[in-house]
Amino acid sequence: MSADWPLWEVFVRSRRGLSHTHAGSLHAPDARMALRNARDLFTRRSEGVSLWVVPSSAITASSPDEKDPFFEPAADKPYRHPTFYEVPEGVRNL
C-alpha cells in the first residue's frame, strides 16, 4: 500500500484581528495530524494564534490563462478607489 501522505496547505492567523494567511504546505496522513504538524512547523516561534489546514486537492484556483478576462475589468474602475477623488486642501476626516 502507498505510504505517501497527501499534501496540505497551511494558513496561519498571526494574531487576533488579522485573517489567516497562506504559510506553506506539508504532508500528513489526515487532518488531525496535518494540524499538529502545522503547529509544530509554522508556529515554532509563536507566529500564530490559529491554524487552518486544507487538502491541496480541495483548492480550486483561477487559471493564469484566465488572467485578463478575470482581473482586468477591475482595472478600469478607478472610481472604486478613494484616491480617485479630489478633496480640497485642509478638509479632514474624509
Binding site: W5, L26, H27, A28, R36, N37, D40, L41, R44
Partner: peptide
C-alpha cells in the same frame, strides 16, 4: 518522516 523530526524535537 520530516514532520516528525520537528514534532519530536519540540
Amino acid at each position: 518522516v520530516l514532520e516528525e523530526e520537528v514534532a519530536l524535537a519540540n
